[in-house]
Each structure stands twice: as C-alpha cells, then as structure tokens.
C-alpha cells in the first residue's frame, strides 16, 4: 500500500464545461443508509437520472415499501408515499387512478413484492395499472438481517435456512417477471442487473423505456433488478457481484421477459 498516493486533479480537465457525469439533481444530498456496495444505491441513482432527463420531477409520485428501501423518500427529491409492507402496488394503483396524468412508480424488495404483497402485485399487474414497478430482487430479507425470501435460491443459506433452502419443504424461488409476463394486461417486463458498468447502462435504458411507455399510457411495466446483499450474503461487495453474475443470473436470467408485440 506504500505507493498509494493520491494524485491531484488536473485543473485543465476538472472544469464545469468538461463534466460528463455528476449526481442527478433529483437525488438528495443525504448519505444513503445502505451497506457498502448495495445495489439499491445504483438503482436509486438511475431512477433519478431518468426523472431528470425526462424532466418529470414535478409530475412523478413514488411509493416506498417496507424493507431496506423504506427510506427511499429520503433520497429521492420527489413527492412520495410510504406504503405498508407489501401494499405498494395498491397504494400506487390508487395514486395513478386519482391522477392519471402523473407518473407513478413503486419501489419494492422481494419480501415486499413477492411474499406479503404478492396479491397486490398480481392484481395491479392484471388490471394493467399504468405504472412502473421497480423490483429489487436480492434473494434475502435485508432489513430484518438475512432471512429467507421467496426468491432465495435453492440450497442458499440464510438465517432461517441455516442448512440451505430445501425446496421440498420451503418451495422454489419465485420468478416474478416470468409469472407476471403471463398476464395479458402487462406491457413490458424486463429483468436487469447492475453488477458491472455494462449492465448499469442497460438497466438505465430499461427504466427510461418503462417510463416512456407509461407516458404513452401503455400500462403495467416492471423492471426487476437482480440485486446483491453483501452484508446478509456474508460477502464483500466484489464477491457479491461475482455471486450475482455466477449464481443469481443463472436462475434469474437477465433480459427482456415481455416486450410489446411479444417475443
């Protein structure tokens, strides 16, 4: 570590006119409470970048879930509502029905969306509610410190599956994107990840696409993110990214699951 000396900035380059990236203005300055390396931060950032680029800060209402992202409204500088555990899709449905000309999204984890709230999720999708669901699937209950989620992989160790998830007694991980893609009223369902620079670029395009569809009144869109949970997976952030690439995306295949016109 001896040669690790900070190199000063190059004043020729570090000038306002040469900025190619800075934090979106719709992201607040509050430091994120998430653990180091958590995918939530990346997705928050992408979502707010898209809000900035579409210039819809005054036209979008977000719904935060219960789970690690319960405080999403602390970081997103837009009007937001905090829903009861699992009920974000019901809350989002009503906001959109009251204000069809506004943009609405829910931001939910796997426990919230796929366990306690699966009825609300499926029925909102089945009604074709014209809103965006941002689904963070990291295969574990993060906030309550690492219990089994409906999306926990087979044989994966969690605090409530200390010997690994036994699919014979604990069921199989739910592929929510494939499940919702079956419903005729869903319009655009895609699964993305943010575990490297290439995937982050694609993920942002998916979010933008979903909000553009909402603008056109196309109906229910979901962007699922195969996320990580370094703390509860008992991994370093880099190990968790490797796990996403080697294990998670094997079961949860990244890519569009349902696109307009069928595929």
């Amino acid at each position: 570590m001896s040669n690790l000396v900070e190199v000063p900035v190059n004043p020729e380059v570090v000038q306002d006119q040469f900025v190619v990236y800075k934090k979106p203005k719709t992201l607040t300055d509050k430091p994120l409470h998430y653990c180091p390396g958590c995918a939530h931060g990346v997705v928050h950032k992408l979502l707010m970048e898209v809000v900035d680029e579409m210039d819809i800060q005054d036209k979008i209402i977000g719904v935060a879930p219960v789970g690690c992202s319960v405080f999403a409204y602390d970081y997103m500088n837009i009007d937001m509502q905090e829903a009861a555990h699992g009920r974000a899709c019901a809350v989002g449905t009503a906001i959109k029905r009251m204000m069809p000309d506004k943009f609405v999204f829910t931001y939910q984890g796997d426990g919230d969306l796929a366990a306690i709230g699966i009825a609300e999720t499926i029925h909102a999708a089945n009604r074709g509610e014209n809103m965006l669901v941002v689904f963070i699937n990291n295969a574990v209950y993060g906030m309550t410190s690492g219990q089994m989620a409906p999306t926990t992989l087979p044989d994966m160790v969690t605090t409530t599956t200390p010997f690994g998830r036994d699919v014979k007694t604990m069921g199989y991980p739910l592929r929510m994107s494939e499940l919702l893609a079956q419903l005729p009223a869903t319009y655009y369902i895609t699964r993305q990840s943010v575990h490297n620079a290439v995937s982050v670029r694609k993920a942002k395009k998916a979010l933008r696409q979903a909000l553009e569809y909402q603008k056109e009144g196309k109906g229910f869109c979901m962007v699922e993110f195969v996320g990580n949970c370094p703390s509860n997976w008992r991994m370093t952030p880099l190990e968790s990214q490797k796990f996403v690439e080697e294990k998670m995306t094997q079961y949860y295949v990244v890519g569009d699951v349902k696109v307009p016109g069928g595929k």
Binding site: F18, V20, Y21, H40, V42
Partner: peptide, 23 residues
Amino acid sequence: DNCTGCLNCELVCPEAIITVYRK
C-alpha cells in the same frame, strides 16, 4: 493520472459520489 473519463466508476458507484470530467 491516466483517467480517460470512461464513466465506468460512476456507473457502478452506489453512492453517486463520483463526478467525471472528459476533455
């Protein structure tokens, strides 16, 4: 001092704390 301004670092940064410049 060899940055090319490729943006990869800011793309993966969960904290959105890297400002990138390119000339």
